[in-house]
C-alpha cells in the first residue's frame, strides 16, 4: 500500500492541500493552566499569530509584485504558528477542573466558554480587526509588519520569562526565532522596494 503523498503526483486531481502536522512539535510537561492564560495573548491578542496571518494575507493584494510571495509565505506560516499556540493552550487546560481554571484566573473564561478556545487576549478582550492596518502604501505597510514581528518576539520573551516549563519554552523559542527571521525578510523587502540600482543618485 502506498502512503499518502503530501503533494500531488502527476495526473492526480487535488482540490485542497493541508499537511496535518504541526510546524514544530508541541510538548507540555507541567499541568499549568495559568500559562494558557498568558499564551492566549499570542492567540487572539493585538500582536498575536491570528492578527499577523490576517494582516499579511490581506496586505499582499496591494503590494508590489516583487514582495507578494513573501507576504503569502509568511502569512500562511503564521497560521501554522497559530495551530501550535492553540495546541499549547488546549493541552494546558484540557483536564483542568473548573476550580483549577478559577485559581489560574480563567474563571471568567470558563463561564463563557468552558475549556473551548476563544480568540481573545490575555486580559480577556475579544479579538478585533482594528489590531492591524492596510494603508496601501508599501513602505508604511512593511514598516508595520516589521514592528509586528518585533512585538511578537518581545511577547514570546515575556512568556518565556513567566514560564518554567522547559518543553513548552523549547517550542516558544522556536516561534521567537521565526519572528526574528520574518522581521529580517520584511526589512529586506523594504530594501528591494527602495532600491535605486541603475539610477543616478541625487538627493
Amino acid at each position: 500500500m502506498r502512503s499518502p503523498a503530501p503533494f500531488p503526483q502527476r495526473g492526480e486531481e487535488i482540490v485542497w492541500i493541508y499537511e496535518k502536522k504541526l510546524q514544530y512539535p508541541v510538548k507540555v510537561s507541567t499541568c499549568n493552566p495559568t500559562l494558557a492564560k498568558y499564551l492566549v495573548e499570542q492567540y487572539g491578542g493585538a500582536d498575536g499569530e491570528l492578527a499577523a496571518a490576517l494582516r499579511y494575507l490581506n496586505q499582499r493584494y496591494t503590494i508590489p509584485d516583487k514582495v507578494i510571495g513573501l507576504l503569502t509565505d509568511i502569512g500562511t506560516e503564521e497560521f501554522a504558528h497559530l495551530e501550535m499556540i492553540a495546541t499549547m493552550i488546549y493541552k494546558l487546560t484540557k483536564d483542568a477542573k473548573p476550580q483549577a481554571l478559577k485559581e489560574a484566573g480563567l474563571g471568567e473564561h470558563y463561564v463563557q466558554h468552558d475549556s473551548a478556545l476563544f480568540y481573545n487576549n490575555a486580559a480577556g478582550v475579544p479579538f478585533s480587526a482594528t489590531y492591524f492596518q492596510a494603508k496601501g502604501d508599501p513602505i508604511a505597510d512593511l514598516y508595520e509588519d516589521i514592528a509586528a514581528e518585533e512585538k511578537a518576539r518581545a511577547t514570546y520573551q515575556w512568556i518565556i520569562d513567566m514560564s518554567d516549563d522547559p518543553d513548552l519554552n523549547d517550542s516558544l523559542r522556536y516561534l521567537r526565532e521565526r519572528e526574528i527571521v520574518h522581521s529580517q525578510r520584511f526589512r529586506e523587502a523594504v530594501e528591494i522596494l527602495k532600491d535605486e540600482r541603475d539610477r543616478q543618485k541625487i538627493f
Binding site: 514544530y24 514570546y156 520573551q157 518565556i160 520569562d161 523559542r173 522556536y174 516561534l175 521567537r176 526565532e177 521565526r178 526574528i180 527571521v181 529580517q184
Partner: peptide, 19 residues
C-alpha cells in the same frame, strides 16, 4: 535548522529569562 527555526547561523539567537 528545523529544530532551531532558521537555516542561517547568523540569525540564530537563543533566548532565556535574563532575570
Amino acid at each position: 535548522a528545523l529544530r532551531k527555526g532558521t537555516l542561517w547561523k547568523v540569525f540564530y539567537d537563543y533566548y532565556d529569562n535574563p532575570y
